[in-house]
Amino acid sequence: MKKKRIIPVLLLKDGSLVQSKQFKRHQNLGNPFTAVKRLSNWASDELIYLDISRKQSYSKKRTDLNFSNVFSPTELIKEVSKVCFMPITFGGGIRKLSEIELLVKSGADKVSINTIALEDSNFIKEAAKEFGSQCIIVSVDVKLFKNSYFVMSNYGKVKTNYKIEEWCKIIQDQGAGEILLNSVDNDGMKTGYDIKLLKNISKNSKIPVIALGGVGEWKDFSEALEKTSVDAVAAANIFHYYDQSVFLARKFLSDKKLNVRKPELF
């Protein structure tokens, strides 16, 4: 049987790995390359890099960081794919088909797009046609306003007119391969996923939904897998707190007889 996936998300800001809280506060965790080696060894199912830098080119000469190698996205993907043999997704700031091509050539299996899709939903279709649906994840940042969930743009800052249900339907019709559903409210809060949101979206989705935002303990993963139809559970911060974090998460879920790959260390 096909397994539910456990996916660590690595947030990048100006070339460093960071933690995030409600899309606002970002704390530096260091070198994104050494982090991925760790996660690869612990048998993640996939990896997602999300670049939340506000500008696209990093200065490699920064002296305020405590390490010397800062990677550009393509350099990072090139290096990571030499040691990390699982699907790798890169997202953040993608606005052109040529940028996707470069990332794919560097070793990314999929890309995650967000703001550009909101500005022009045809971009999803064009990208899916060029690189295949399997390559195109649409990342959706969502926030609750009174009783309705609205899609947010520009790194979770700007409210759009799209209700979440409406936007998810457009994404699917345009040929996206997967939806990465990220709750702005729950981001970094360690209070668990927004189960109601996940349930509602995954129930009606014809493409896989990846849950993101809010995981504070392993049982948050199992809650999403037990109560909703999401295809994958993703998280960022929690995987950097513990040694062997992905292995431990997998063991926890496997012990609960959930449908995940058996835990094993590489």
């Binding site: 049987m1 096909k2 996936r5 199912d45 391969g177 997967e178 493409i207 896989p208 295809d231």
Partner: peptide, 11 residues
């Protein structure tokens, strides 16, 4: 009942 693509780990 299932969604396409078939994406993920399988036996």
């Amino acid at each position: 009942k299932s969604i396409l693509p078939h994406v993920g780990w399988n036996e």
